[in-house]
Design a protein around this nucleic acid. Structure first.
Length: 833
RNA sequence: GCGGACGUGGCGAAAUCGGUAGACGCAGCAGACUUAAAAUCUGCUUUCCUUCGGGAAGUGUGGGUUCAAGUCCCGCCGUCCGCACCA
């Protein structure tokens, strides 16, 4: 047997063996319990780096482990292939987006294959395949017919660089999530999916996701943003411009007697109507729109108001008139676009009242005795008892809320209600490289869905990107069609779907891909939900919320009997690497940095950052695999850092991993020899079997790695014995999910005919998990003074006597008897002097 | 501003229920093997003191609860993440 493991030969060999045997092909018909392991599929942006690899290797270890545990494992791979980078590449390099995308997929598939991933490649697809997006169009038509899709003119987030609309979720600090350009407001006709119809169940469903990180559940909960409160109508004392009342929403109906003004959003219909006849109103509204939307600007933005001169009648006192302002801080798209101001108990209203000299009334106080204490410095939004509030006086906040709502509902001027922060999902994109929206606009029939037998609506290939904007819009031959309903001249919708639609159901298509429909219900339900989903936390809201919505929508349509698509979710950390910059702050490749230093130019070590092309700190997998092999790379990616935390790429780290792979090989290929039992090694082995299994299931790969190191150390120190030879063999099984190539090689070298990938996971013998002897800590006053060895399960009395017999303890106690003795069996004895 | 997470050796980290802090790895030091190097193997490696037996301190910081706190509670400091004029 060779003294060194040669990954160059072994990697390719075993990858071919797995491939030819169809080892990782998932069977829909197997009787074994299923496990669906999925990593978020990649966008084919060019090349992968080792940071992407970490994600796939984690899923791979779990998939291989589950196979060994007897599960039928579905572990597929595909490509989230629509999106703007392809179009940008088309514009810059004059290649067709499809060509660019296909070339990237081919390159990245080759890179992934170098890692020896246990993937079922037979289910691979790209979302830009008409065979995929055609079914997506069919699903869109289904949702359309079910009333879950609608079109409306709306003010949208317009990205002036990418020349497209962005969803609210895609606007970060007022800038486009991709381009980074400040987002503009524009009015456009857009297609929307009714995700708000599902707000309640998306929120409640979070409760069932106990295998999701709390952090992600909390983020979704905040995003959905449920607020309970009351809606009520203010009558306008002197109706103008055709309006005699307006509605407001509040979460604090209890403070209704603390109100000193009402305020309308600058976009409110009444404000807009007033602006028609009064230039000063129009000017104020224009002023409000000027301000930026970045965090910093909003932080410092002044509260601005314009007194319309209108008076609102207090709903509980017809004599009480409130001034009506237009105020810049009132948002049209939350609640009703109008508020009633309670300066004493809301900070924004407080600032507003200060600026415009409005009364600041106290209606909540710590106790009734504080009723006359003025509210000073800042608003008091907290708990207390109601004061200065007529029939509410003396109630606590919750009771007062209920009392006001009951009164309003009884008298018919308001009602208890719930308001959501979540908005409907705008899915129209004015881009070419996406799924065409399967709708035809007919001047007579309106928006007509493309009949199912005419799907897919295929993207035309012959498009030009010379002119800015959407090339579909200019493509007459594609765009101009007959109306499917009346046969008259009509035009295709030229907007394409947000690519997040593509990724909202790909996991269903992986489970089942018939040619004639999106998926087969029974086949999909065999695999779904995904047992373990792995990906970046950056998708905590967008992709994960949309997928949950899509799955629930399909359920409502009766197409799928599953509520939640992802039972387990894991968000892994990034791989980071050193960066270098020159004197001008430009990023340098490591070799450029070296050359510059040799030339005596100043080079600064940048921060250790997430690998990215722009920072020039990416490590591609090819040279690493060529030098150290796939197993060393996999081992490194699993070692040391907890998987949810960032992992720093270092040359020393990959070399350490390579040394371990070689060490495994040496252990496995050494002459076995020896006879007889080694009870202590067997205990170690069985504890390791249990620990590695538990740690892999918990995705604590770094701990599983440490368990293996401990076992390897113990085996190396153990004298030859039959136990030792068996331990080596078992260790090969334990590392097989993590370093599969060297494991197969060692397995074959040991004369095994079956693949180790098909071998069963070893079972820990429960009898060997229990120690016969334990080390007992002996403390005096809580400080460790001695340790002693006792049989497992020794009685308290015996432990106490042994502890008192210790010389060290005797020296410290100086002959005194301890006042108190605490004995924790099998752990410690604490003598309190 | 609101919400959340985290803070342990030179570094990555571990410590499952409040019970021997630092397992395991990296880096480092010393030694073995070698003509030499690589590879490999052995030992040491939290800090300070030491009469070499051991002793003291120690998990961001200050308190508290407890026989016992990295772990629980309260305050503070710092780092990171999410949301943000949400009525």
């Amino acid at each position: 047997m060779a003294s060194r493991f040669n990954p160059l030969k072994a990697d390719a060999h075993w990858q071919k063996v797995w491939d030819e045997a169809g080892t990782f092909r998932a069977s829909d018909a197997s009787g074994r319990p299923k496990a669906y392991i999925l990593e978020m599929f990649p966008y084919p942006s060019g090349r992968i780096h080792v940071g992407h690899g970490r994600n796939y290797v984690m899923g791979d270890v779990l998939a291989r482990y589950k196979r060994m545990k007897g599960f039928e494992v579905l572990h597929p791979m595909g490509w989230d292939a629509f999106g703007m980078p392809a179009e940008n590449a088309a514009i810059e390099r004059k290649v067709h987006p499809g060509e660019w995308t296909r070339a990237n997929i081919a390159a990245m598939r080759g890179q992934l294959k170098l890692l020896g991933l246990a993937l079922d490649w037979s289910r691979e697809f790209a979302t830009c395949d008409p065979a995929y997006y055609g079914h997506e169009q069919a699903l869109f038509v289904d949702l359309f017919e079910a009333g879950l899709v609608y079109r409306r003119e709306s003010e949208v987030n317009w990205d002036p660089v990418d020349m497209t609309v962005l969803a609210n979720e895609q606007v970060i600090d007022g800038r486009g999530w991709r381009s980074g350009a400040p987002v503009e407001r524009r009015k456009l006709s857009q297609w929307f999916l009714k995700i708000t119809d599902f707000a309640e169940e998306l929120l409640d469903g979070l409760e069932t996701l106990d295998q999701w990180p709390d952090k992600v559940r909390l983020m979704q909960q905040n995003w959905i943003g449920k607020s309970r409160g009351m809606r009520f109508r203010f009558r306008i004392a002197d109706p103008t411009a055709g309006f005699d009342s307006f509605e407001v929403f509040t979460t604090r109906p209890d403070t209704i007697f603390g109100s000193s003004f009402a305020a309308l959003s600058p976009d409110h219909p009444i404000a807009l109507a007033l602006a028609e006849g009064r230039p000063e109103v129009a000017a104020f509204i224009a002023e409000c729109k000027k301000g930026g939307t970045t965090a910093a600007e909003l932080e410092t933005a002044e509260k601005l108001g314009f007194d319309t001169g209108l008076k609102a009648v207090h709903p509980l006192d017809p004599e009480w008139l409130l001034p009506v302002y237009i105020a810049n801080f009132v948002l049209m798209d939350y609640g009703t676009g109008a508020i009633f101001g309670v300066p004493g108990h809301d900070q924004r209203d407080f600032e507003f009242a200060h600026k415009y000299g409005l009364p600041i009334l106290r209606v909540v106080a710590g106790s009734a005795a504080d009723a006359d204490r003025p509210v000073e410095g800042e608003a008091e939004p907290g708990e207390g008892v109601l004061v200065n509030s007529r029939f509410l006086d003396g109630m606590d906040v919750e009771a007062a809320k209920a009392a006001v709502i009951a009164r309003a509902e009884g008298e018919g001027w308001g009602e208890g209600t719930i308001v959501w922060r979540l908005r409907d999902w705008g899915v129209s994109r004015q881009r070419y490289w996406g799924t065409p929206i399967p709708i035809i606009h007919c001047p007579t029939c309106g928006a007509v869905p493309v009949p199912r037998d005419q799907l897919p609506v295929v993207l035309p290939e012959d498009v030009d990107f010379e002119t800015p904007g959407n090339p579909l819009d200019r493509h007459g031959a594609w765009k101009n069609v007959a109306c499917p309903r009346c046969g008259g001249a009509a035009a295709r919708e030229t907007d394409t779907l947000d690519t997040f639609v593509d990724s909202s159901w790909y996991f269903i298509r992986f489970a089942s891909q018939p040619a004639d429909r999106p998926f087969d219900k029974a086949a999909a339900e065999r695999w779904l939900p995904v047992d373990q989903y792995i990906g970046g936390v950056e998708h905590a809201i967008l992709h994960l919320l949309y997928s949950r919505f899509w799955t629930r929508a399909l359920r409502r349509l009766g197409m799928l009997g599953i509520a939640e698509p992802f039972q387990g979710l894991f968000t892994q950390g990034m791989v980071t690497h050193l960066t270098y910059r020159d004197a001008d702050g430009n990023w340098l490749l490591p070799e450029e940095a070296e050359a510059a230093m040799d030339a005596g130019l100043p080079v600064t070590h940048g921060r250790i950052e997430k690998m990215s092309k722009s920072k020039k700190n990416v490590i591609p997998p090819e040279p690493i695999v060529a030098q150290y092999g796939a197993d060393a790379l996999r081992w490194f990616l699993l070692s040391d850092s907890p998987p949810e935390r960032d992992l720093q790429w270092t040359d020393a780290g990959i070399e350490g991993a390579w040394r371990f792979v070689q060490r495994l090989w040496r252990l496995a290929s050494a002459e076995a020899g020896g006879a007889g039992e080694d009870a202590s090694l067997e205990r170690k082995l069985h504890r390791t079997i249990a620990a590695v299994g538990a740690n892999i299931e918990a995705l604590a790969f770094n701990k599983a790695v440490a368990n293996i190191y401990e076992l390897a150390n113990a085996i190396e120190k153990a004298p030859p014995s039959a136990s030792r030879a068996a331990a080596v063999e078992t260790m090969i099984l334990l590392v097989a999910p993590m370093v599969p190539h060297v494991a197969e090689e060692a397995w074959a070298a040991a004369g095994r005919e079956r693949l180790i990938a098909d071998a069963p996971w070893p079972e820990a013998d429960p009898a060997l998990l229990v120690e016969e002897e334990v080390t007992i800590a002996v403390q005096v006053n809580g400080k460790l003074r001695d340790t002693l060895t006792a049989p497992k399960g020794a009685p308290r009395q015996a432990l106490e006597e042994m502890a008192l017999a210790s010389d060290k303890v005797a020296r410290i106690l100086e002959g005194r008897a301890p006042r108190k003795v605490i004995v924790v069996p099998d752990r410690l004895v604490n003598l309190v002097a």
